[in-house]
């Protein structure tokens, strides 16, 4: 009798085990509703389209709508606590803000970008303008003979580095402004391909703080107008936030659609919002192709 009871009990369990709904192992879970926040991007590298700030409203992960431009935002820039500029929305591009006159940023000074808009919490981010970097020496040696007279060789570069942790972005380009292609490669071991612009490399001076960095990079420069006799080497010193944003953006690109990839938290430095405010200053040097 007692065995019968046990067998009946287990039979009932097996019966219940076959009930699909009862044992549906996927269930919906609720998360708090998303409150839209300002998503601000400002990557100021002292080049074309510089001092651009994009302001968009965030959408929740469960929403299908696209992130929309915020046109009624108040975007201001302060230097060492004093407001020095108000940025205006581009007439042709909603959500794109620029100062009416480019602001001259001074190394060592602290800049605070503040964005506020109706129905959004005000967001702020702060950056200290890095010093202009020093290209101590640069040499481009063409190593591959080719019929197109492109620059395809080695860039030997020496950077004079300050004390402390510094971050650099390096690029090389044709000096003519016509359609051309150029790239520098991260084959040196210290640098990595920039995620924001694959034709550049990015690095930090962890391994050589305060010392000169001499490094050789593979590089390629072409020009549609003729022979590449000389190239422009660009060196930026960028802030830690630029470096982190670039690295996480690069990781996001690499991890796209890969289920085995580790999750990536996009770097952000705006409190109470999303996005990044980052600065960089550039030095350039035109050198002949040898």
């Amino acid at each position: 009798m007692k065995y019968l009871k046990i067998i009946t009990f287990f039979s009932l369990l097996v019966f219940f085990s076959s009930c699909e709904d009862f044992f549906d192992q996927t269930t919906k879970i609720d998360i708090p509703p998303h409150v839209p926040k300002l998503g601000v991007t400002a990557l100021w590298l002292d080049e074309g389209n510089d001092q651009l700030v994009t302001v968009f409203a965030s959408v929740g992960a469960l929403e299908d709508e696209n992130s929309s431009a915020v046109s009624d935002a108040m975007v201001t820039l302060a230097e060492n606590g004093t407001q020095i500029a108000t940025l205006e929305e581009d007439n042709t591009k909603k959500g794109f803000y620029r100062p009416s006159v480019p602001v001259e940023l001074v190394a060592g000074k602290t800049y605070e970008l503040t964005v506020s808009a109706p129905n959004f919490e005000t967001v702020k981010a702060e950056q200290v303008m890095p010093s202009k970097p020093t290209i101590k020496k640069a040499q481009f040696v063409n190593s591959v003979a080719n019929s197109n007279n492109n620059g395809n060789g080695k860039l030997h570069l020496t950077i004079s580095d300050d004390d402390g942790l510094d971050f650099y972005l390096i690029g090389v380009e044709s000096i003519d402004t016509s359609e051309s292609y150029s790239s520098i490669y991260s084959n040196s071991g210290i640098a990595e391909d920039s995620g924001l612009d694959y034709s550049r490399v990015i690095l930090k001076d962890e391994t050589f703080p305060g010392a000169d960095l001499s490094q050789t990079f593979d590089a390629y420069v072409s020009s549609s107008t003729g022979t590449v006799d000389s190239v422009r080497v660009n060196l930026w010193s960028v802030t830690a936030d630029y470096y982190r944003f670039d690295r996480t953006y690069n990781a996001v690109q690499n991890a796209d659609d890969n289920p085995f990839a580790e999750p990536v938290i996009m770097h952000r430095n705006f409190e109470k919002g999303f996005g990044v405010f980052a600065l960089g200053d550039k030095s350039s040097l035109v050198i002949p192709v040898e």
Binding site: H34, G39, L43, A57, G95
Partner: peptide, 8 residues
């Protein structure tokens, strides 16, 4: 948690 548009 969310998405937003920005320039790169």
């Amino acid at each position: 948690i969310a998405g937003y548009k920005g320039y790169v």
